[in-house]
Amino acid sequence: MENNGRVDIEKCISYSHDLAEVLKNKKDANLLMQSLEGAKSLQSDCEADFQEVKNLLQDQQKKIDAHKKSIDEAKAEVLGDKDLDSIENELEEELKKGSLLEDELR
């Protein structure tokens, strides 16, 4: 009986070690699952933030393009320096002619 008792104790110790490993692995698995869920949540949040930033950038790009178009339209309406000089010269000539005509009329 002693031999049977001793074998039972060895089996019991072996079983307890196996059980401890299983329980340890189960804790590891639970931690791994929690980490995985956290990673999924983080990825989802990151994707939502990325999409929001992408939309904001697209909106800003549209505004920039609209402003560039407005600037180009305004530039098209503004006379260049050469045109201004030409008009100024014409005005001076007309003023001189007007002045000469006034002198002649006196």
Results as ranks from 00 to 15, higher is better:
Leu79Ala: 10
Cys46Leu: 15
Glu73Gln: 06
Ala76Asp: 01
Val78Trp: 03
Ile13Ser: 05
Lys82Ile: 01
Lys24Ser: 11
Glu10Leu: 06
Ser70Met: 13
Glu73Met: 02
Asn4Trp: 00
Lys96His: 09
Gln58Cys: 11
Glu37Ile: 04
Lys96Met: 04
Cys12Tyr: 12
Ser70Lys: 13
Asn3Pro: 01
Arg106Trp: 05
Glu2Ser: 09
Ser86Gly: 11
Glu52His: 07
Asp65Tyr: 03
Lys82Phe: 07
Ile13Trp: 08
Lys97Gln: 09
Glu102Ala: 14
Glu73Val: 05
Ala20Tyr: 11
Lys68Phe: 10
Ser41His: 09
Asp72Phe: 08
Asp49His: 07
Glu73Arg: 08
Leu36Met: 14
Leu31Thr: 10
Ala29Leu: 12
Asn4Pro: 07
Asn25Pro: 01
Gly5Trp: 07
Cys46Asn: 15
Gln51Lys: 10
Leu19Ile: 02
Glu92Trp: 03
Leu100His: 07
Lys11Gly: 02
Lys11Pro: 01
Lys40Val: 11
Met1Ser: 14
Leu91Cys: 02
Ser99Pro: 00
Lys11Ser: 05
Gly38Lys: 04
Asp8Lys: 13
Lys40Leu: 13
Lys75Ala: 09
Glu10Lys: 05
Gly80Thr: 01
Leu100Phe: 06
Lys54Pro: 00
Asn25Ser: 01
Leu56Ser: 13
Asp18Asn: 15
Lys82Val: 05
Glu90Ser: 04
Glu47Arg: 02
Lys63Val: 02
Lys26Leu: 15
Asn55Lys: 12
Gln34Ala: 15
Lys82Ser: 01
His17Cys: 08
Gln60Glu: 11
Lys26Gln: 15
Asp8Gln: 15
Lys69Ala: 03
Gln43Thr: 08
Glu10Pro: 00
Asp8Met: 13
Glu2Val: 02
Asp65Val: 00
Lys54Cys: 04
Leu19Gly: 08
Ala39Leu: 14
Glu104Phe: 06
Leu100Lys: 00
Asn55Val: 05
His17Pro: 00
Lys96Pro: 00
Lys40Ile: 12
Ile64Asn: 04
Gln58Thr: 07
Gly80Leu: 04
Asp59Lys: 05
Lys24Asp: 07
Asp45Met: 11
Asp72Trp: 03
Ile87Thr: 11
Asn4Ile: 07
Met33Pro: 10
Leu23Lys: 04
Glu94Arg: 06
Asp83Lys: 02
Leu57Gln: 03
Lys69Tyr: 04
Asp103Glu: 05
Lys96Arg: 11
Ser70Ala: 14
Leu19Ala: 07
Leu31Asn: 13
Val53Asn: 10
Ile71Tyr: 01
Glu52Lys: 14
Asn3Lys: 14
Leu31Phe: 07
Asp83Ala: 07
Gln61Leu: 08
Lys26Tyr: 10
Gln58Met: 06
Gly5Arg: 15
Asn55Leu: 10
Ala66Trp: 07
Cys46Asp: 13
Glu90Thr: 02
Val22Gln: 13
Arg6Pro: 02
Asp45Gln: 08
Arg6Thr: 01
Phe50Asp: 11
Leu36Val: 13
